[in-house]
Design a protein around this nucleic acid. Structure first.
Lengths: 254, 254
DNA sequence: CGGAGGGTTGATTCCCCTCAAAATCAGTGG
DNA sequence: CCACTGATTTTGAGGGGAATCAACCCTCCG
């Protein structure tokens, strides 16, 4: 497994939120920084699956930190099709850009029931001014998310359906591993084949066929909400997956 | 000082660099802010077409502000295919994220000969601390660029070839209009059909066919490096193009 | 028990890729 | 002035990957 273990000492009596786990992979956080981060998690709220958190065109939203459950951000086209831009997993921000732009260019929907903590811009900026290194870490995480969208673009633009699916599952697995929710063996995944289709620019029917192909090739199995990497090595080769930027062993910045 | 290089014509006023024009659409910049911005444009350099500025996997690069010419950022796949993630036009940053992440996850290539000014992280951060509103504006522009990549994702994921091309041309036109290089009538465009293909996830052959379709439908013509919107209205309808976030008349923040 | 949501599979269609070959054009050197 | 080269655009023919349409299955749940 990945060496996230050795940071656990730092936050001895602070709760390890998913966000703290994730940021800890980028920047070695001090006790103070941990507690500032922890103080952000005040206003806890829950949303139920399927009911939009943020709607395209809305303005003046709050931002949220996802504590548990999955969400997705998507855009609708006039003809009713939709494209899922990204999935959010625990430790991810929801609507951070929307807040800063005072306008949301996409909608966000909880896929499962989710727990979040609400964060206002002022809270966030104050936290940043207290601990600049925290700001760096958050910025870093945001950049990584952007890199993920770019990789997603390449998935859709230049990979065929099977490679696309393989790459997508690997990336998701790596992200989940970072917050302790997955490994090279696999991960729990609440996504329906319809959601996968909307994310990968495929039809749901074809998603099904592609999953069968991967299963029969002995590379990956997706059944009963569980993704299993039957052969992690062959899957990465097949998908041309480059895990370097996700394979952080320890923090980049000390 | 401010009187660098070729600020001659306008006399008392500072020259409007493409970046200043663009940021001016977001934030009404004061004289001071303008001059701080102008002071960033010190180290002027040129690069010739086709010779990579930044290479995938390289670390610790400089960032650049594009003054004239076009560039593109792209990623290569193992099988030799490439996907162009975004085109950069005057006023855009090159490699901003790469610098902050100390690692480039993509390459950048000048499409034409380009003029840039080199900017170090420290220069930039210092400028930001002097004029926070400038930081806001740059952040805003960066967010808009990200929104553009997302729109690009939707292009590729959910629009057919013709809609994709139409949407792409409209977006490019709107961006260029922001820095005074285009209008609803059209714009000058140095892109080859091969480049369009790599950007839109199509084959060059099909790009050609699609362009013909748009031309014969009387919506847009691309010939001799010139894009002409034959019917801007019908084109926007056809492409399901939403120009709100690009249709800024004046600055959002005063 | 009936209905809804999700998964699985088959048949058919079509959008776009691939291969191939001209046509056009800019530059280059004889 | 012309032959030669390479890059780019254009057009045609054929094939394949994914969409669409249409069943049928399952499980869950009121």
């Amino acid at each position: 497994m990945l060496g996230i273990g050795h940071h656990t000492k730092i936050g001895l009596h602070l709760e390890k939120t998913p966000l703290a786990l994730k940021l800890g992979a980028f920047v070695a956080l001090s006790r103070t920084e941990m507690s500032v981060l922890d103080a952000l998690h005040k206003r806890r709220r829950t949303f139920i699956a399927g009911c939009d958190l943020v709607r395209q065109g809305q303005s003046n939203q709050s931002a949220y930190i996802l504590m548990s459950g999955w969400a997705c951000s998507y855009k609708l086209l006039q003809d009713g099709q939709r494209q899922i831009v990204d999935f959010q997993i625990p430790g991810d921000f929801l609507g951070l850009r929307s807040v800063l732009l005072h306008m949301s260019d996409h909608s966000i929907e909880p896929i499962t029931d989710i727990e979040v903590t609400e964060v206002t811009v002022t809270d966030l900026l104050e936290a940043f001014s207290q601990t600049p290194r925290l700001a760096t870490a958050v910025f870093w995480a945001a950049s990584r998310d952007e890199a993920m969208v770019v990789e997603h673009l390449i998935d859709i633009g230049r990979r065929n359906a099977a490679e696309r699916m393989a790459h997508f599952l690997l990336e998701l697995g790596a992200r989940l591993a970072l917050v302790g929710l997955g490994s090279k063996a696999g991960f729990a995944c609440p996504l329906s084949q319809y959601l996968l289709a909307d994310a990968l620019g495929l039809s749901a029917v074809h998603v099904n066929r592609v999953l069968r192909t991967l299963r029969e090739a002995g590379m990956a199995t997706f059944r009963d909400g569980l993704v299993t990497f039957d052969s992690y090595r062959r899957l990465t080769e097949f998908a041309d997956f480059d895990p370097t930027y996700l394979d952080q062993i320890g923090p980049i910045l000390r």
